[in-house]
Amino acid sequence: MSADEAATTIVGGLKQAGINLVVTLPDINLAQLLRAVEDDPDILHVPLCREEEGIGICAGAYLVGKKCAAIMQNGGFFNSNNAIVSTLLQYQIPLLLFIYYAGDIGDRTFSTSGSMTEPVLQALGVRYYVMRETSDAPELIKRAQILAEDAKRPVALLLTKEVLGRRAALKSL
């Protein structure tokens, strides 16, 4: 599957899950996905200067009825930790976090970021799922949104190169 097709599938999943406001900060591996978000007329797209501000924007929008998602690299997730703690967890506000898994198995860069991503999510008590198959994405997004709303907490979906259509999927992973 191409990165454009993967982006279309993931954005379709966002819309099926009712997501209508998305904040983003670019990563080269997220380029097609962010373009698909920007081009979708049903999604209000807010490009960020720093990921942490996006957590605040989504928290505010949630309080008045929007369903939100934040798309960022894991470096941006690290940037966002104080906001996740003092805005989302403190007030029990749900949010779908789409975190590009830089430093994933097979990457030649960012292995330190990769090694810290899941432990930090675990330390925050944020439940997360590693997405490997693009075809699973819509169902996984729907279920993650249900979990986030029910738990009133953030839920993270880790975007790998496979799910973004940037390398062949490995079923056994």
């Binding site: 209000l44 942490e52 605040g56 505010g60 929008a61 309080l63 906001a83 003092s86 805005t87």
Partner: peptide
């Protein structure tokens, strides 16, 4: 009135409210 317990995000929170309503 929404009272934040965070330093920094007042402006961003307000933007989220403003865009959504």
């Amino acid at each position: 009135n929404y009272h934040l317990q965070n330093l920094g995000l007042t402006s961003s929170m307000a933007l989220g409210l403003a865009l959504a309503l």
